[in-house]
């Protein structure tokens, strides 16, 4: 039994079958990549895992519990954090504040009317957020407005925000899309370090094969809404069906 079990999931958008009979099992503590050509349904699948979309049929179990019908914030509180295809951060807030918010969410839950205590008195939260910023190598940017940072830094911050919640499953949707080579390599190193030092499972959607083959322990290839093959990176590289459906196209 994997930490995440997707069974017979179907999702239609009008006449378009975005997902058809998707089965996927992600083993705990693994790094699992999901690849496939544009429009294959990768983001749609991710949306079904985090409560943004509800599948038409099928089941999604996280750690033995169904996530279907739960709101995104509830699913997050169960232990699934998500990094978006374009970084989603609190642009109007400072980097430090961005990092404190998930720490509050972790400590106080989905809602807490903490209206008459001062933020400066929240020593445990401040410490935690600072620690995380140090880990992310961003402590010198703590007072910057998040919106004014580079895309690479925003992505880094977003990953840091997700990690500060100590999720059991981290979902990444094309974390290196649109990044310069150096930033991409930094992100790979960061993810490697996360995987080695934390009690975490990572599922990553990625087009960049360099990233995929540097990180993934298992790969699922999605094409036209259904999984084509699932195997180790070595096997995937040489798989004729994959070459035909995906690698051939992207080369």
């Amino acid at each position: 039994m994997g930490i995440l079990e997707v069974k017979n999931v179907n999702k239609r958008f009008g006449g378009l079958k975005a997902l058809s009979d998707v089965n996927l099992s992600i083993a705990e503590h693994s790094v699992h990549a999901i690849i496939g050509p544009n429009g294959a349904g990768k983001s749609t699948l991710l949306n079904c895992l985090v409560g943004k979309l509800i599948p038409d049929t099928g089941s999604v179990m996280f750690d033995g519990q169904s996530v279907l019908g739960r709101a995104p914030y509830e699913i997050n509180q169960m232990g699934i954090s998500r990094v978006f295809q374009t970084p989603e951060i609190f642009g109007d807030l400072t980097v430090m504040e961005n990092m404190m918010i998930p720490c509050f969410a972790k400590r106080d839950g989905a809602f807490e009317l903490n209206a008459l205590t001062s933020i400066v008195k929240q020593k445990d939260i401040i410490e935690r957020a600072e620690h995380m910023l140090e880990d992310m190598n961003m402590i010198d940017k703590r007072n910057m407005h998040a919106a004014s940072m580079s895309r690479g830094d925003k992505r880094r911050l977003e990953i840091g925000m997700c990690l500060s919640q100590e999720p059991r499953l981290l979902l990444l949707d094309e974390p290196t899309a649109g990044m310069a080579r150096a930033d991409t390599n930094n992100t790979i190193d960061l993810l490697k370090q996360i995987k080695d030092t934390r009690d975490i499972t990572i599922a990553i959607i990625e087009h960049d094969m360099h990233v995929v083959f540097s990180l993934a322990e298992r790969i699922t290839v999605l094409a036209q809404g259904s999984p084509l093959v699932e195997d180790t990176p070595e096997k995937i590289k040489g798989h004729p069906k994959v070459r035909e459906a995906y690698l051939g196209e992207s080369a």
Binding site: Y73, F90, N114, I119, I125
Partner: peptide
């Protein structure tokens, strides 16, 4: 207060809040 910070977060990005 932390509550005030959450309210500013609502203004800034509700999507991120939900997924946090």
């Amino acid at each position: 207060s932390p509550f005030g910070m959450m309210l500013r977060a609502v203004k800034s990005n509700q999507q991120r809040m939900n997924y946090t």
